[in-house]
Amino acid sequence: MKNDNLLNLEDLENNPSSRVPVCLVLDTSGSMEGDSINELNEGVRLFYDAVRSDETALYAAEISVVTFGGHASCQAGFSTLEHQSEAPQFYAGGGTPMGEAMNMALDMLEKRKGEYKASGVDYYQPWIVLMTDGMPNGSPAELSRSIQRTCDMINDRKLTIFPIGIGEDADMDVLARFSPKRSPLKLQGLNFKEFFAWLSKSVSKVSQSTPGDKVQLDVDGIKGWAEL
């Protein structure tokens, strides 16, 4: 990890492209076992491939992944895909410590933003994608702390969150608490691939914009993965 950090710092020195930080915060608890985790793996792999194949996004998007299945775990730290090998592989198991995972993601984001600033690299407003098929059962204090932090950042325009529920048991109310400005969306069936294809296109669009641009996301594309 230490060497990764060094590499990521050197990358900031050598590549001045404005960064698009994206953190995937993914539920890998026991209930995701089976088709859900398989489709999630396939979706994230596709996301990595798509970002990698876009030559602007490759040098601009910094992807990180935090999972919560039993415990919060950093599967990939913020870096461009030029410096990540393959998409992480997830296994389902354990409880749903969503608050711990969100706090970990926010800590990682703060650290990386500090590094951007220290190196003189611009960055776009960060995105967090929060996906769950259940309800959080980690520490209630951590959960409310992470909700507070997330809401503060969103209200300060320092973060955009895409909260997405998977299946009938997804706690849409808790997802809504993470998203003070708008309602969370529910994934259509197990359309992870469609979602991640859409996400990669959106990341590409942002990375091809100039700081200050309003980026129009593909609204029609949302119909391919969200229950509307």
Binding site: G114, Y116, K117, D122, Y123, Y124, K158, G212, D213, K214
Partner: peptide, 15 residues
């Protein structure tokens, strides 16, 4: 390096 506490800094640009 320690992560900085959230300061007033909002990226080099707000979108």
């Amino acid at each position: 390096f320690e992560p900085r506490k959230s300061s007033g800094y909002q990226g080099t640009f707000g979108r």
